[in-house]
Amino acid sequence: MTEANASARRPSGELEASVLAALWAADGRALTPADVQRDLGTALARTTVTTILARLYEKGSVSRTRAGRGYAYLPVQDSPGLAARRMRTELDKSGEDDRGTVLARFVSQLGPDDERLLRELLAGAEEAPPAEGGEVS
């Protein structure tokens, strides 16, 4: 199975999520479909990326401006950060246990020793030779 096939088989919701994440990660820079394709690093077809961006635009998740013959896309910024902060405060109020019950979390707090150890582990991982980045085959 080639990589293109693997990408094509992913549910379209997952591809939309990846594209939106790439736009937000660009930190205010508008991205063309080519930029997104390059950033994602996977062998997604340009037309697929263009289709996904068009779909996100129709849903109102992103805005776009003319760039050459095509468009460049920006994520839509509404009610900036306000509700997000409110949500965070609510969660923090609820205590660690309850919060964990509701939200399966990706990261947890690190102590100083944890941080040191983690940096060592990651440094070790970076030195080791194989497969960097998204070059999955």
Binding site: P11, S12, G13, E14, L15, E16, A17, V19, L20, A21, W24, L56, K59, S61, V62, P75, V76, Q77, D78, S79, P80, G81, L82, A83, A84, R85, R86, M87, R88, E90, L91, V102, L103, A104, R105, F106, V107
Partner: peptide, 27 residues
């Protein structure tokens, strides 16, 4: 409450909601 706030606050695509918050967090 968490659900309501996430939906109200973020931009969504597929199964992802992005919150505009400089503090790194994911769940």
């Amino acid at each position: 409450r968490a659900r309501r706030d996430a939906v109200a606050a973020g931009t969504a695509a597929g199964d992802l909601t992005v919150l505009q918050d400089p503090g790194p967090d994911a769940y």
